[in-house]
Design a protein around this nucleic acid. Structure first.
Lengths: 312, 312
DNA sequence: GTGTTCAATCAAATTTGTCTATGAGGAGAC
DNA sequence: GTCTCCTCATAGACAAATTTGATTGAACAC
């Protein structure tokens, strides 16, 4: 049985005439006769009563089958409609993941931007650790993720979005209160609070300040499962100091008077935030659009990385 | 788009592996790859995300299309099921027509017979004049009709069922009360009551007794729209005499004592009852079965005509 | 009878579908 | 890095199917 045969029997049922049905199907009359004969033979059922002079009649069973054939053809049409509607890569659901230390600062700006730029794109947001995001991306549970370098996974492509310097956060009464900037190595003697294992930001800070590595282990252990906001509050309370990505310094945070922010002295440590997706992900246009939207976000202190820079 | 292609994409969606899907479809992997590529190109939509190492992934739109494809395939299966169920020509509805002067006497015996012999055949009965039955038969509103010869219509085949002699019905006090039989020509002097125009039985009686033709016209005009049973009652009431087909003499009629039945003298007039159907009607087995069932009916005074006789 | 109409049939050309063999690309082992 | 394996894509050849124009046959109208 083929869809063509079904179209033919529906045409014959409508026209009640082989020649006219053939014309309506844009085929010759023998084509139609043979096709119907083939279908009748396959189903082992007589669909039409041929009479040479008068119009063709449909058998009872033929009518039932023609009705069902029409249903099949309608459902087939739906496939075309789905394809037509879904052809735009900028429509439909898009599952975007982001790490904990980026999501809360990037997404409030990004989501309204995308909703305006691509109203048919339904964003579904998920925050998690890099490792979990990577797994979900590979699974297909996510379509793209916002992470920070280093990030190299087989089958995954990335594009850098912006470079984000780190800054130091100290309580108001701290000895560094009047300092212009802080050298990375100076962190070693301080009560440095960092996020727990799993947060890539922790590793990035420690990588930037190798001397902190041994010293901070006990303190940071207490902050497993914490967040930058919690740590910021602890800084305000005088428990210690911390390092923050500059995007977390959005002016909507009410406690900004309670912590002092100091930049690092050159060479300033930082990280590159990137978008990652499966190499064979078909909606590349959606990827590009989202990458551009992120680059266009108004984030404090970051240095945007354009596609051209990436190639260099 | 072909049903085969839909089967292929469903298989790939299930197996998430081109090679295994091809195996499940009993085709080679290139066959499947090409078919899917063709469908993707036709729909202008990427259905699957291929990756060389890991299992393939279905795109959002691909999943929608695969779901819809499964629906199409299920509906296609229904066509096969309809064909399978309806393959037996002795099942399903069968629309049988009969003329007024046969139906009431034949059908009460025929219907229970057929219900037993062919329980899947749903008889739908219709009584009408010959001309209306012929029209409905040609239309396809009826599948077969029981009529009496002469009956010759283009595109319609017939088979004789039985020969039915006519008899004379007289009131108890009639002059012919003690007669053994009646000659046809003797009817001419009587108050002969006949059915109205349209009833073939009327024409048949008049054809058998040409002398009655002129004389009876006024009387029979009063009986337009009547029935044999009404006329029988009128005979019992002494209004006149009539001619009946012998099958109308079933012993269940309570007024048989009130009319006397006399056979005709040789050559006895009568008629041949036949089954008629469209020459190309596909359920010939059903026709044969019904013809045989009618021949097997227990009708008083008829002479059964077998298929063999028909050929002669 | 002749002519007309319509579907079935036929033989030939075309298209489609399928196969085997091979290629390309990526991932992982070494 | 190179090699190998795995997976899907591609190429060319072949077989099967679809399609077509021409013809035939049946049924009917005149």
């Amino acid at each position: 049985m083929t869809l063509t045969e079904l179209r033919y029997i529906v045409a014959v049922a409508r026209k009640r005439h082989f020649g006219k049905a053939a014309e309506a199907c844009f085929v010759s009359q023998p084509t139609l006769s043979i096709a119907i004969k083939k279908l009748e033979s396959e189903l082992d059922v007589r669909l039409f009563e041929r009479s040479s002079k008068n119009e063709i009649r449909i058998t009872d069973i033929g009518q039932q089958i023609v009705d069902q054939a029409q249903k099949v053809l309608r459902e087939t049409q739906v496939i075309h409609e789905i394809a037509q509607q879904g052809k735009d890569p900028l429509s439909g659901p898009f599952r975007l993941g982001a790490i904990y230390t980026i999501g809360p600062y990037l997404l409030p700006d990004l989501i309204p931007r995308l909703n305006t730029a691509t109203p048919n794109l339904t964003l579904i947001i998920e925050e998690d650790f890099t490792a979990n995001l990577a797994r979900k991306l590979k699974n297909g549970d996510l379509d793209a993720i916002v992470i920070s370098y280093p990030f190299d996974e087989p089958g995954i492509a990335t594009t850098p979005l912006y470079e984000e310097p780190f800054v130091v956060a100290i309580p108001p009464g701290h000895a560094w209160n009047e300092r212009e900037d802080i050298a990375v190595d100076e962190l070693a003697g301080q009560d440095l609070m960092l996020l727990g294992a799993g947060h890539c930001f922790r590793d990035q800070v420690l990588a930037a300040c190798p001397k902190c590595m041994s010293q901070s282990s006990e303190l940071t252990r207490k902050l497993e499962g914490s967040s930058l906001e919690t740590i910021r509050h602890m800084v305000a309370a005088g428990t210690g100091i911390t390092v923050l990505p500059c995007t977390s310094l959005l002016n909507r945070h009410s406690n900004r008077e309670l912590v002092r922010i100091k930049p690092f002295a050159d060479p300033r440590p930082g990280r590159v935030v990137a978008l990652a997706w499966r190499k064979h992900y078909p909606r590349s246009e959606a990827i590009e659009t989202i990458a551009e939207a992120i680059r266009g976000c108004d984030l404090p202190g970051v240095k945007r990385i354009d596609d051209a820079d990436q190639a260099a």
